[in-house]
Design a protein around this nucleic acid. Structure first.
Lengths: 195, 195
DNA sequence: TCTGTCACTTGACACGGTGTAAATTGACAT
DNA sequence: ATGTCAATTTACACCGTGTCAAGTGACAGA
């Protein structure tokens, strides 16, 4: 009985993922998701009481789907600071395109919706911890450039790796993903690693 | 006769500037602008046929008001590439906080409104030309780092100097404006100037 | 076979914000 | 006195989100 219930819920989430990805997160209404999931718009609200809640649930679903945790393993296990930095950029930088549509939709709600803002910010805070860890790994190796304090370096790396920057470089400037990753590694090295 | 007409128009624009600045561009409705300008919401549409049009007109008004052109003079007249880069970062970087509210409002419409997107993108294209000129000045001095092609360096500088990055560093990370400017100069030097 | 439950449907409505339309007012110029 | 023109008042349309109430259809247990 509850399995049918669960089925619908996950069907909604799958649909949301697909639709957000296809449309790069723009113009995806509750109506569209419902229709494609084979239910009515109203039925959507039986599962998710607001659009923000649906989007947030979709992020967790997507994380599970794409294995966001496992991706960080290489970064966490790297022995040398520089490797850790590289591995983190590789992991996060390649994750962005997979969540881009959803991120964009959530980001668009951030300014008006309290819950969406909180969810997004929390997510970014988590990402920031990865940046911090990478910088701290450099500090441990005594390899952090004297130009920046660890805190400041973290702020910069965090900003460099923002979804918006990825968007600008790949979508607006037309960089291929590989170039994006490679260049960000270069920039990070140059900015943070003492010579 | 037309002076009263013009008066109202500029009064609207002044109000829009003030309101957008005060609210950091968030939650400013046609209604609010009209009320504060001392007219009805409907009368607003006698002067600007859409919200996007009003915002776009406001950008021009603001440019005039803040002297966006003159700010670029030091950058344009700099003899040495590195000085030009510094001057450009200084000019644009200090301009951002003055237009932030408006930029944010326009940016929020970008995803849904064709006209707003066009206006914003054009603006960013102009800014990009400044980046390009600064990078080209380095090239002329044979000082551009071998890490990047001029085009790539322009893309990077353009992205580094985005409004979103300014927002993240100053508002989210709490950097004072001076620190923002100083750090961006450091980063640009380190990334683009060959040693 | 009756009864209850549960997911979902149907159809309707409220709200906020943008944009449109028509009739009216009040000031000013000729 | 007449015309013009900015602005007003009132009203409505559209879109998307969210709510509500009544109804349907399937399935489960007694």
């Amino acid at each position: 009985m509850s399995s049918k219930n669960l089925d619908t819920r996950t069907r909604i989430l799958e649909t949301a993922v697909a639709l957000l990805e296809a449309n790069q997160g723009r113009g995806v209404r509750m109506m569209d998701i419902a229709k494609r999931a084979g239910i009515t718009r109203q039925a959507l609200y039986l599962h998710f009481s607001t659009r923000a809640e649906l989007l947030i649930a979709t992020t967790f679903f997507l994380d599970e789907l794409k294995g966001s945790e496992e991706r960080l393993v290489p970064s966490r296990t790297a022995q040398i600071g520089i490797d850790r930095l590289d591995a983190f950029i590789e992991a996060w930088g390649n994750y962005i395109p997979e969540i881009y549509g959803l991120a964009k939709a959530l980001l668009a709600m951030r300014d008006t919706d309290e819950a969406a803002a909180k969810a997004w910010d929390e997510r970014m805070r988590d990402m920031r911890e990865g940046c911090e860890a990478a910088i701290n790994a450099l500090v441990s190796d005594n390899m952090l450039s004297r130009d920046h304090s660890p805190q400041q370096a973290t702020d910069i790396l965090w900003t460099m790796l923002s979804v918006r920057n990825w968007e600008q470089l790949t979508i607006e400037c037309g960089w291929p993903q590989k170039k994006y990753i490679k260049t960000l590694k270069t920039l990070a090295r140059r900015n943070f690693v003492a010579e």
